Simulated scan of single mutants.
Amino acid sequence: MAEALWGKAALWPGLRVGHFTDLEALTGCTVVLVEEGWVGAADVRGAAPGTRETDLLLPENTVEKVNAVLLTGGSAFGLRAADGVMRYLAERKRGFLTPGGVVPIVPGAVLYDLGRGRVNRPPGEEAGYRAALAAGEEVEEGSVGAGTGAVAGGVKGGVGLAGYLLEEGYRVLALVAVNSLGRPFDPKTGRLYGEELLAGEERALLPDRSRYQGSPEDYRYPFLLGQNTTLAVVATDAPLSKAQARRLAIMAQDGIARAIRPAHTPVDGDLVFALAQGDGKGVDPYALLRLGAYAADAVTRAILRAVLLTEGAPGIPAYRDLMA
């Protein structure tokens, strides 16, 4: 039986996370730093993605390792934050070696949060640089970083982190920024989708639903149509090959579908990055199967943690506010 992890316990040496949060603009960015270079892959399931360097991560393409991954608000404007992450890494001479010097490899993806704050200020280069500078082993969750202005099916979205320690000794974690069209809860009962996966201590985060006023199931969603996306990074210390990291990302997508309904829609840009530490020689298929299964569970738990730990914003209630 795998051990559920969260917070500082979910990270390990070589892996750090940093946020930049702009409360006035209700936006921000989150950086996952793996400065020494980890095998990288990605899987895109939403039909409205905003991405940077994801083609580089295809198994058939040359560069295998990345130095950081950027998750950011600001829609396509937010991709500029990757320049700041590159600057941070270049100052430390981390990146792909070329005749002209190192080139940091920083794939990224965006979610839509434009117009949700008091000012219009998408994350830029300085935001990415500051997020990288802030990276550490303590990961704040809720309305921070890329989840600062996020909305999940009509309630406040945010950032969540969850992981597992497998019996084989490998670790796998998921960091998510939830800004979905689909709801993370059943509108008839108020129950969070996937909450049966929460670890014992995490269940204390669940609010009392006895006062919840239910509503009929409805997939018409008039709110925030086309202003959506759930982004995730799954990471493991297993020495996956690039193709295996891609399979890990594919399997982890199931965690989004378990926690959010509907998912992978025409107006979401749902995407999962995968990072694997080690020499890239690969693991046996059964080990990869278990890593992928637990990665999906970790994504579900991370989404639930994001929704449970976030605070409401003007005009956007937190999930727990609906239960009061």
Score class of each variant (00 low, 15 high):
99 P>N: 00
23 L>G: 07
175 L>E: 01
7 G>H: 09
268 D>Y: 06
273 F>D: 05
70 L>N: 01
57 L>W: 07
126 E>N: 07
172 V>G: 03
138 E>W: 14
118 R>L: 06
32 V>N: 12
253 Q>D: 02
34 V>G: 08
316 I>K: 00
99 P>K: 05
310 T>N: 13
252 A>T: 10
18 G>E: 09
222 P>Q: 06
255 G>H: 07
178 V>D: 05
86 M>I: 09
248 L>M: 12
6 W>H: 12
76 A>L: 15
41 A>P: 12
54 T>D: 04
217 E>L: 15
1 M>H: 13
26 L>S: 13
260 I>E: 08
263 A>D: 09
200 G>W: 11
74 G>I: 11
262 P>Y: 10
70 L>D: 02
216 P>M: 04
101 G>A: 03
171 R>C: 03
65 K>G: 01
278 G>E: 12
144 V>Q: 13
316 I>H: 00
20 F>E: 13
140 E>G: 02
172 V>I: 14
116 R>Q: 01
154 G>N: 06
147 G>M: 09
19 H>K: 10
195 E>R: 10
100 G>E: 06
146 A>P: 00
80 R>A: 15
63 V>H: 00
165 L>I: 06
28 G>R: 08
311 E>S: 15
60 E>Y: 14
190 G>D: 12
49 P>M: 11
152 A>M: 09
130 R>S: 10
189 T>Q: 01
201 E>S: 14
5 L>C: 12
60 E>T: 10
237 D>F: 10
136 G>M: 04
160 G>R: 07
193 Y>G: 04
57 L>R: 09
60 E>P: 01
60 E>F: 13
7 G>C: 12
139 V>L: 06
301 R>S: 04
81 A>F: 05
130 R>L: 15
88 Y>L: 07
86 M>Q: 13
38 W>Q: 12
227 Q>K: 14
66 V>P: 06
37 G>F: 13
226 G>I: 02
306 A>W: 03
305 R>A: 00
299 V>K: 05
139 V>Q: 04
9 A>T: 01
52 R>P: 01
13 P>S: 09
111 L>C: 11
91 E>K: 15
210 S>L: 02
23 L>Q: 14
166 L>S: 08
97 L>P: 06
233 V>I: 12
97 L>W: 09
135 A>L: 08
170 Y>E: 11
66 V>N: 11
139 V>A: 06
20 F>R: 12
224 L>E: 15
51 T>Q: 10
220 R>T: 15
226 G>H: 07
258 R>P: 00
238 A>G: 07
321 D>E: 15
51 T>K: 10
29 C>S: 09
140 E>A: 15
140 E>F: 02
30 T>K: 05
141 E>V: 15
115 G>W: 08
2 A>H: 11
187 P>F: 05
41 A>H: 12
292 G>N: 08
212 Y>P: 00
139 V>S: 02
254 D>L: 14
43 D>L: 09
283 V>I: 04
25 A>F: 03
248 L>V: 08
9 A>C: 02
297 D>R: 15
255 G>W: 05
260 I>P: 13
170 Y>P: 05
242 K>M: 11
233 V>F: 09
308 L>P: 03
70 L>M: 07
217 E>H: 12
44 V>R: 10
